[in-house]
């Protein structure tokens, strides 16, 4: 089913929030890291994986999800978290390592947990698939509403966890949707040099589940494919695999010189920026008026500014509180 006008605007707005959030984080991340780049310096230390360009995957899938549905995400999690409804202030604060963060600074940007909306992510490729299968098993056994979605990159499709998890989900006919965000690069290694198949969607056949390839990094097309997969899961008909073509507009992490990209690729991708493409399409089709557009942009900016300000102004936890929460 195609998205309604309201759903289109929801997807557009959440892509904008994600992009604005990341553009702001990107600037703050560089504070204290110039002229010499030292990852440990500045208000946001550590690795930073931006999802610029991959927003359509998150919104196209999460437009179908409710609070009770479970999402396990990746080391590149901001767009997925925002689309799932993770509290933006607490998330920003966690990225700054502050006391008011989702976990008081114990997790950081790769370990965002928001139990209120059943969102979690983790730092190692392919880690979220098993837990998503388990959450789906839990829902099935408890006869409780909700499906589980595992987001991961095309690189994770070469992990054992991918194959084991798809098989297990299929054997137990669980309400889980496996979503590949294929951005064509595993850090510096091109997908075609690392993956035996052109499209990972075909691997679904090995596990007797639908595998749908969605080209174009297009929110509407992703919405349609995800809608079918989510409906199938909700109906108790088992798991599905979505293989989404997307683009990473930034490096693997901040500081990545991206020398591995062929000449012209970056420029080409930037010219296809999915948010700009979608904005244009919505304006052209009349799904978005100019005034709606500026309202949405203003609202997105306000939301991001408030979150960042909250994070900036929040205190740090005491260092000794690092000892808390090792056990339940």
């Amino acid at each position: 089913m195609n998205p309604t006008l309201e759903q289109k605007q929801w997807m557009y707005r959440h892509m904008l929030v994600s992009r604005l959030f990341e553009e702001t984080i990107e600037k703050i991340y560089l504070e204290g890291k110039t002229p010499v780049f030292n990852m440990a310096n500045g208000p946001i230390p550590g690795e930073m994986h931006l999802s610029n360009g991959q927003e359509p995957c998150a919104v196209g899938v999460c437009a179908h999800l409710n609070k009770e549905d479970v999402v396990t995400a990746t080391h590149r999690p901001h767009h997925q978290a925002i689309a799932k409804g993770v509290d933006l202030k607490k998330m920003a604060s966690e990225i700054f390592g502050k006391e008011t963060g989702l976990s008081g600074g114990r997790g950081g940007h790769m370990h965002l947990f928001d139990a209120d909306v059943n969102f979690s992510c983790s730092g190692i490729v392919g880690q979220g698939l098993g837990p998503a299968v388990g959450a789906a098993l839990s829902r099935k056994m408890q006869n409780k509403a909700g499906v589980a979605v595992s987001f991961f990159g095309e690189g994770a499709a070469n992990q054992g966890a991918f194959h084991e998890s798809l098989n297990l989900a299929a054997v137990w006919k669980l309400p889980v949707i496996f979503v590949i965000e294929d951005n064509a690069w595993g850090i510096s290694v091109a997908k075609e040099t690392a993956t035996a198949v052109d499209r990972n969607a075909v691997r679904a056949a090995a596990y007797d589940m639908p595998g749908v390839y969605v080209p174009g990094n297009d929110p509407d097309a992703i919405f349609v494919a995800a809608g079918e997969a989510v409906s199938r899961a909700r109906a108790g008909d088992g798991p599905s695999l979505l293989d989404i073509e997307t683009y990473r507009l930034a490096g693997h992490f901040m500081g990545d010189a991206e020398a591995y990209r062929p000449e012209g690729e970056k420029e080409d991708l930037l010219s296809k920026d999915p948010i700009l493409v979608y904005e244009k399409a919505l304006l052209a089709s009349g799904d978005l008026s100019e005034s709606d557009n500026s309202d949405i942009k203003e609202r997105a900016k306000r939301e991001v500014d408030e979150a960042i300000e909250f994070a900036r102004e929040s205190p740090f936890s005491s260092p000794e509180s690092a000892l808390d929460h090792v056990f339940a």
């Binding site: 396990t72 837990p131 388990g134 789906a136 098993l137 839990s138 084991e164």
Partner: peptide
Amino acid sequence: PISETAFMGAAVGAAADGM
């Protein structure tokens, strides 16, 4: 199945979800 990675991961997900 003989898939320890998947079922150990599934145990984590199921436990976090209330089982």
